[in-house]
């Protein structure tokens, strides 16, 4: 048995320490062959995304508590950007997830965008698979942002929740860009702030312009006051992706895997050099990398 197989064996047996070490290996871009995850209706990968400052981490804290109270094992992968200048990162999501720090049944890993040579989405996919193989039933992926790339990151999740807040309206911008189709539910947090109602109205109204009558629900909650959380969880569990949404998700997953395959190719630097010197064309480079 190789070192990696030993670690995997012990992680599957329940070693938290070795699970954590394997997650680091995946983060660094190593491949890991895992058993298929058991079919279990209780298993869910939940993607939470939205602009900075809307209360995603506080909301994630509430979701952890909700599942924890129901006896579920919850794992969180919280992604924060790293500084493009120094490569350093300050990962502070834990501070707002009080429920994350107590108990054996909660596992939280903070990740920066830096440590992922092949693109974060592919490593998140592998990490989620590993966690569910090791018996973590509920996996929450938290990412900052409301732009196209951030929503793409969570395209592999079973359910995707977009979070917005009062005085932001970022989701309406996202609606313009046509990426909101990936969301199964839109949550407007900080419902105790009066302008939150207005934001929710605006999002609903933006949806009403669409021809599809299966736009995601828009729900007002207050993570701080624990208001509307049960309703949100019920909606997350009961929402079913219409066929077209499932197809968009599959498309995004293919794109992420494609990115990953190109970016993690050992020939990448050579191909870039060759294109730079003009000895091969972009198309040649792509053929070499994908070959």
């Amino acid at each position: 048995m190789t070192e990696k197989e030993k670690l995997l064996h012990s992680a599957l047996e329940g070693s938290r320490r070795d699970l954590s070490r394997l997650l680091s290996m995946i983060e660094k871009g190593e491949e890991l062959s895992m058993p298929e995850r058991e079919e279990n209706p209780d298993y869910m990968i939940l993607g939470i995304t939205g602009p900075p400052g809307v209360g995603k981490s506080t909301l994630v804290g509430r979701i952890i508590s909700y599942w924890k109270e129901r006896g579920k094992k919850v794992a969180v992968l919280a992604i924060d950007p790293s500084s493009p200048r120094t490569g350093g990162a300050l990962l502070g999501d834990r501070v707002r997830m009080d429920s994350a720090n107590s108990g054996e049944g909660v596992f939280v890993r903070s990740l920066s965008t830096r440590g992922n040579p092949g693109g974060i989405s592919a490593s998140l996919m592998a990490m989620s698979k590993l966690l569910s193989c090791c018996g973590w039933e509920k996996i929450i992926i938290e990412t900052v942002g409301s732009g196209q790339s951030e929503i793409k990151i969570v395209a592999f999740a079973d359910k995707i929740v977009l979070v917005d807040g009062p005085d932001r309206g970022d989701i309406i911008q996202a609606e313009k860009a046509g990426i909101i189709e990936l969301a199964d539910l839109v949550v407007v947090n900080k419902s105790d702030v009066p302008s939150a109602l207005k934001v929710a109205e605006n999002i609903r109204s933006a949806f009403s312009f669409s021809n599809e009558n299966d736009s995601p629900e828009v729900l007002l909650v207050s993570a701080e006051r624990n208001d509307g959380i049960e309703e949100m969880m019920e909606l997350i569990q009961s929402s079913e992706s219409p066929l077209w949404r499932s197809r968009i998700k599959i498309r995004e997953r293919l794109l992420s895997l494609w990115d990953h395959r190109l970016m993690s190719s050992p020939k990448l630097n050579q191909v870039i050099d060759d294109i730079e010197t003009g000895s091969i064309s972009l198309e040649d480079g792509l053929d070499i990398l994908s070959g």
Binding site: S20, S82, G88, A89, L90, L91, N101, R109
Partner: peptide, 25 residues
Amino acid sequence: RDGGHEVVYTGLRRTPEEISRIVMD
């Protein structure tokens, strides 16, 4: 962070058990 490190801050009032679990996770 500015020195290029990845820093996870735990927040206040953590027990030794919590801290050791955070380091592990």
